[in-house]
Design a protein around this nucleic acid. Sequence first.
DNA 1: CCTTCTAAAGCATTCGATTGCAAAGGGGAA
DNA 2: TTCCCCTTTGCAATCGAATGCTTTAGAAGG
Lengths: 340, 340
Amino acid sequence: MQRVGATTIKQIAEELGVHPSTVSRALNPSTRRLIGKDTIERIEQAAKKLGYYPNAAAASLRTGRSKLIGVFLPDISNPVFSPILSGIAEVTSEAGFATIVADVGTESRSQTEMMFELVARRVEGLILATVSRNDKLVQQCMSEGLPVVLVNRAESQMRVSSVTSDDAYGMRLAIDHLHQLGHRRIGHLAGPQNLSTGYLRGKGFNEAIIALGLDPSETPVVECSAYTRQAGAIAMNTLLAQKPHVTAVVASNDLVALGAYDALQKAGLKVPDDISVVGHNDMPLVDMVHPPLSTIRISHRELGREAARLLMSEINHDGSARRSIVLAPELVVRSSTRKL
Amino acid sequence: MQRVGATTIKQIAEELGVHPSTVSRALNPSTRRLIGKDTIERIEQAAKKLGYYPNAAAASLRTGRSKLIGVFLPDISNPVFSPILSGIAEVTSEAGFATIVADVGTESRSQTEMMFELVARRVEGLILATVSRNDKLVQQCMSEGLPVVLVNRAESQMRVSSVTSDDAYGMRLAIDHLHQLGHRRIGHLAGPQNLSTGYLRGKGFNEAIIALGLDPSETPVVECSAYTRQAGAIAMNTLLAQKPHVTAVVASNDLVALGAYDALQKAGLKVPDDISVVGHNDMPLVDMVHPPLSTIRISHRELGREAARLLMSEINHDGSARRSIVLAPELVVRSSTRKL
DNA sequence: CCTTCTAAAGCATTCGATTGCAAAGGGGAA
DNA sequence: TTCCCCTTTGCAATCGAATGCTTTAGAAGG
């Protein structure tokens, strides 16, 4: 049942002939001041000698605090989301919290079921990287009274805190870059419109087009069904069929951009000689593809860190107001874009 | 403190005028047979109505089982390790276990400290993807009586179960391939020798060289300090300085191979015209680099799944013997290798 | 009609740490 | 010397679920 050697506070107390509560206080930083110095010394030594580690379940039961948080990811193995997780783990573990991951993508159960399972484990908060623009999960968490922070993706109503990249600004960077290179007929491979990233980048695209006074009829938008290479290739083909004369495309995501590469190659078009391509995210290795992809860099690890910090502060000072943090992305010019 | 609305068994019992123990048994599949059918029905309805979710901490305290496992990764955001985590999460969550991740790479504390923190949380087992060939952490886990499974990397003494790819066989595949293409002077960019992957792939390299009767003085080996592009580039330069006449190199890892790409490009050598390159792992996107990388494919997700299955069975039937599972990798030929 | 079973439910304890309250002991002030 | 206070420690209840043991109420059998 219990592993051998699981020392309890009681055993330490017996060893030293003191009361368990004294041991508890001596070992707890916030109550240590109540105990005599030499007693603390003796207790700490005994604890070390007996290999004592507090039973988190017992403490959690009594205090109602589990020091656990949950993280929902659409796909752990996606190079966009794994650095987010890494950033989250970095911050939370420093704060003494352990992180439970839920890979929603490969999960047979629904997100709601997963959420309730984590509620059963009394997680103190949730970080969601999975939400769509109008996600019922947010409402469910709120009615459970569970602190929630959204990361990477936000929802349309700003009901909870979020940390995202400035999607519209990223698009603006991409399009300004292409515009400076002389491109006027620019297409957009939009992401799924039910995700904030897809929606806001699309919106950013339109705004930038208008701001630069470009002809909307020459700046077609095609929506991808997902952030994948396959979907990107399909969308690129559609766009090519609609407007064969575009000289550049801006993808909503690097994988989509690489899908566009695939489609363009099949169509016999060269990047960047015949058409320029800009991605979004700056995933690992996109500097190694051929040609190296110009893209919008987002620090996903930093996104994760900020989200974790936000959640930690919401958990600790419960009053803290809802906040939305928007990080600025940057343009990385490589070789997939060229002067017209 | 405790979130509002955290219903307890007692509340359900009061609502229905039955004893808490009856509620507990009714809600627990393994004790349900002790309770009358209609009582079960009433209890289940009340539980749903009140939004009851069992307090995992309380159950864990009483039963000594936390339904938690821990996973140690050297780097979550590394595309080699994130699919492993994904595979683990898939299997464990199906078994009702939650997975706590520890990203050892970005962690300021030592692995030993992390381990004890997880012990405090009463995790029922650990999956380690971090161990070196001679890692004291394994010993420490063993003396804590904690079930452990190693994944991707094994240790030299087979003291605990492990799931790995057949590293030597993978090397054999790579070298047979190059040999068939006519290559005779083949170099090896070895991984860190304190990691089983680096060591075994190096060993596999040597064995294959001997088996094919190649001249060892024409098949140089250079060890990389890490599995990174930088280290790969440095090692490639060293190898080039030692034996400029090699016609092919086998890298211990895809990133190392890409580092070799960098170094070769700087040296004015073309892949595969001047020199063939083979990687190892088949990371995402290495089919998109220029030229597309021939490599040894490992299903990291499957590695994770198997490791999780192994751990689950060790946790459940405590008697189960130590086992080591070795998965066969496969050769993926792309365009970085060419007939001599 | 009485005994014997058995199914169903209740009772009380337990897991290990935390914490409000009580008590003891020592020191200082009046 | 007495009284009070403060520091240090002990006591006991508590968190919520699980579980061995007991009790109760019918049913079955003689």
